[in-house]
Simulated assay, not measured.
Amino acid sequence: MSTELPDRLSSDPRSPHFNGELLGRGIGIRFNGQEKTNVEEYCVSEGWIRVPAGPAKDRFGNPMTIKLKGTVEPYLKEA
């Protein structure tokens, strides 16, 4: 498997941008220079991440998320 990370990745298995094998290897996200550990989805080209909005859930039991815009830098975590 190559070490090139996709432009967009989601942790939701229902998303077309989900990649379980890559997520299993461990992905880290730097957002505006700070390490983020609670990212649900990211897009490098559009410059945004989705993070949970506290303990709130939608009507299907999924976490409510907010979109934050800024500089997104994904990387593979060391094994």
Rank of each mutant, 00 (worst) to 15 (best):
R14K: 13
T37Y: 04
V72F: 08
T65W: 01
A53L: 15
T37Q: 14
D7Q: 13
Y75K: 07
G61A: 11
E4D: 10
E4C: 05
G24D: 14
K67A: 12
E41L: 11
S15F: 07
S45F: 01
E46M: 04
G33H: 05
R14N: 11
V51A: 03
S15A: 09
R25M: 13
E35S: 14
E78R: 12
S45K: 10
E35H: 04
R8F: 03
V51R: 06
I66L: 08
P52D: 07
V44T: 12
K67C: 02
G28M: 06
F31A: 06
G26I: 12
Q34T: 00
R25W: 05
L5E: 04
S45Q: 09
E40P: 00
A79Y: 05
E73D: 14
Y42K: 05
K77M: 15
S11I: 07
N19P: 04
H17N: 14
E73T: 11
R8M: 08
G26V: 14
M64F: 02
E4V: 13
G24N: 15
G70I: 01
K67L: 05
A53F: 14
P6I: 08
L23D: 08
L9Q: 00
G26E: 11
E4H: 12
I27N: 05
R25P: 02
F18C: 01
L23C: 07
